[in-house]
Write a protein that binds this DNA or RNA. Structure first.
Length: 488
RNA sequence: GUCCCCAUCGUCUAGUGGCCUAGGACUGUAGGUUUUCAAUCUACCAACGGGGGUUCGAUUCCCCCUGGGGAUGCCA
């Protein structure tokens, strides 16, 4: 089938968000790529919660994350709620495992306690930058002897554990999307692996978990490239083979900066609330940094699963283009069965207080209305705005009123037309149109000269679905009344 | 500042030395259809950042510059 030039048997990938708020589209895209890769290869997709940041992690965020993934239909084979053989799936519940690895590193003398204050560290970095040097720990605590360590500890001074990074050579790895990436070890920092509160840091916990959970491919954002050499250093110190890495390009906002909360609604749940279809967003996001062999764009989930491959992930950052998303959402809305759209419309209409109780609603009428606006929709939140005049008195917009209603003779013409409308029986689209057209012809007018004023009188605006359809839904009496009111 | 990554239309992308007078999609523009809008159909606008190499031949390979992004945390 497809050759990803990697071993595709027994693939295990993970999505490992930190629960410090809701997901944003960048995170989601990472989850999507991991999920498609797992499903394409018949491997496992694992959800792991990286909650080592005690201050900012919240259970609410965990729910939000799960809700987001579920909304997209991204299911996980192992995770906090579903369990699995490699749990627990919350890092804060895996402290004993980290301890085990720390002991190994201590035994190997690969770590050392550091008592430096954050102030000193900040000052140190500042100085290094001033001297145009790479900012790295200066090694003040690197060679403390037992007595010094005991003395400082007994004084109650907190310490962290730093990892001794190799000082010579280069660390290299073959990234599945970037190819060879290498970095001089000499510019690498003796980074912290255990915080002063005894908790593990990201770079350490991540490695331990990926080892313990038997992760085969680490697919994550480009912003983690700089962490990878550090993590590889840990793998090497432990004498354990590291997994494949695939760093995927970042999603940029319109300002070309990494996508973040600054760019307005960044959470998928917010997109849901704005009226986007999960599959439209999923399809769109999948195409940010990836394209199938044949460059298709509109693809079903199964089609993507079928053709997804890491090889085809490109390595340039992608700007998020909401216009294209809107287009794609519109395409999928048009493909929806009407009943489904009606149900969504009901919710939107109620939210906008255009209808009161969904139970006492004329479904037949709503269906007709929804059918009329279906191809005019780009997202569900637009529904109320598009149909409000079917429920409430129209809000007359100034410009169309001036242009079509306030013209000489229009008032009289409409009054005469009302007499025609009154006679239309049955009040269906065809009969109505025939009658009105006959009127138009008799008066020697052009269709637009009648239809535009009628539209404005009935809807308050210059654009609407085909007017006879609108009239039919409105009903004879409402039409007559609205025209009369508009002329008053 | 330091390190890393990246560089095709405004945006998402195809393109892996000749098939490229660079293809598709979104947007935009013009037109057809229509009572308007939308949808739809047709056409059009629009790109290989610059400079050196390598080669018979570079969008494709190498180097430099420029530009953009990321990382530089006891956040992940």
């Amino acid at each position: 089938m497809h050759n990803d030039n990697t071993n595709l048997k027994g693939v295990r990938v993970r999505f490992a968000p930190s629960p410090t708020g809701s997901l944003h589209l960048g995170n989601v895209r990472t989850a999507i790529f991991n999920w498609f890769f797992a499903r394409h290869t018949g491997g496992k997709f694992i959800l792991r919660i990286e909650d080592t940041d005690r201050e900012r992690s919240t259970p609410e965020s965990v729910s939000l994350i799960m809700e987001s993934l579920k909304w997209f239909g991204l299911d996980w084979d192992e995770g906090p709620d579903v369990g699995g053989n490699f749990g627990p799936y919350y890092q804060m519940q895996r402290l004993d495992k980290y301890k085990k690895y720390i002991d190994v590193l201590i035994k190997k003398n690969m770590v050392y306690p550091c008592f430096c204050t954050t102030e000193r560290l900040a000052e140190m970095r500042h100085q290094m930058q001033k001297q145009k040097l790479p900012p790295r720990y200066d090694g003040k605590c690197k060679n403390l002897n037992k007595e010094e360590i005991e003395r400082l500890t007994s004084q109650g001074i907190k310490h962290v554990l730093r990892f001794r990074v190799p000082t010579t050579d280069t660390t290299e790895f073959k990234d599945l999307v970037h190819g060879k990436i290498s970095i001089e070890n000499s510019i690498m920092d003796d980074f912290v692996i255990v915080k002063s509160n005894a908790g593990p840091t990201y770079n350490f916990a991540c490695v331990v978990d990926d080892i313990e959970m038997k992760i085969t491919h680490v697919i994550r954002g480009d912003d983690h490239i700089s962490n990878t050499p550090k993590q590889i250093a840990i793998y090497k110190a432990l004498g354990i083979n590291f997994p494949e890495f695939a760093h995927i390009p970042l999603i940029l906002g319109p300002d070309k900066a990494k996508l973040s909360k600054r760019h307005g609604a960044a959470s998928p749940l917010e997109y849901r609330d704005m009226g986007y279809l999960p599959h439209a967003l999923l399809n769109f996001l999948t195409l940010l940094g990836w394209a199938p062999e044949d460059n298709r764009e509109l693809m079903s989930r199964d089609e993507i699963v079928e053709s997804f491959s890491i090889e085809k992930i490109n390595d340039r950052n992608a700007v998020f283009d909401s216009q294209k998303l809107d287009w794609m959402n519109g395409v999928y809305i048009r493909k929806m069965p009407l009943e489904e759209l009606v149900n969504i419309a009901l919710v939107e209409l109620k939210k906008a207080e255009l209808i009161k109780d969904t139970k006492e609603v004329d479904i037949d009428k709503i269906s007709k209305i929804v059918a009329l606006i279906k191809e005019r929709l780009r997202k569900f939140s637009e529904i109320p705005q598009l149909v409000n005049y079917f429920f409430d008195k129209p809000v007359y917009e100034e410009k169309p009123v001036r242009k079509f209603l306030k013209k000489d003779g229009v008032s009289q013409m409409l009054q005469e037309l009302c007499k025609v409308i009154e006679e239309v029986e049955p009040f269906d689209i065809e009969t109505l149109e025939d009658a009105v057209r006959e009127f138009i012809e008799k008066k020697g007018l052009k269709a637009g000269q009648v239809i535009h004023p009628v539209r404005v009188a009935l809807t308050g605006r210059a654009a609407s679905p085909p007017i006879f359809d609108v009239m039919q839904v409105l009903g004879k009496q409402t039409c007559l009344k609205r025209i009369a009111d508009a002329l008053a």
